[in-house]
Amino acid sequence: MTKTNENMVRVDRREALKVAGASVLAIGFASTAHATPEDAVKYIGEKTGGAAATEGSAKVTIKLPEIAENGATVPITVVVDSPMTDADHVKHIHLVADGNPSPQIVSFNLTPGCGKAEVSTRIRLGKTQNVIAAAVMSDGSVHTNKQEVKVTIGGCGG
C-alpha cells in the first residue's frame, strides 16, 4: 500500500469511481416511497396523452454526468433534433426520474421562437437512477431517451 500524495494527484476521478454497483442515498427527500420505472412510464403517458413513444430515439440527446458529485445538484442538458419551424417543432420536453420520490422533474414548453430545442437545468436525484427525456413534437409524436446517472455516496456516515 503506497499512499504518497504525489502519485495520486492525477487520479482520474471517473476511472476511480467506476468501482460500481447500486446505491441508496437521500438528499432532501427523506421519503421511503420511490417512483419505479413503471411509474415513470405511466407519468409520461399522462403527459403525452398516451401517444405511442419512440423509445431510445436518436432525436433526443441527454447530456448528464455519468457520475454526479452530489445528487442535490446535477447539471443536465437536453437537445432535441428539430428545425423548430412553425410546421415542425418541439412543443414540450418532459424530464422524468425513475427513482425519485415522484417521477416528474420539470416540463419545458417550447415554441418556434426558441429557434433551437436545447435546454439546460440542474436537478435533484436521490439515488442512482435513470433520467428520461420525453419530447412531444408539433405533429403529436413522442420521442424519448434515457440516461443513467450514478449518484455518489459520501464517506463519513453523514
Binding site: 414548453n109 417550447l110 421562437g113 439546460s120 437545468t121
Partner: peptide, 28 residues
C-alpha cells in the same frame, strides 16, 4: 416577448435549489 410566451418551464421539487435554466430564442 411582446406579450407572447416564447418559452416556459413547469418545475417540480426535483429541480435543484436556486434554479438554473438555459434555453434559446430566435432574435426577430
Amino acid at each position: 416577448f411582446g406579450g407572447k410566451e416564447i418559452f416556459s418551464a413547469d418545475m417540480h421539487p426535483s429541480v435543484s435549489a436556486n434554479p438554473y435554466i438555459a434555453f434559446n430564442i430566435r432574435a426577430e
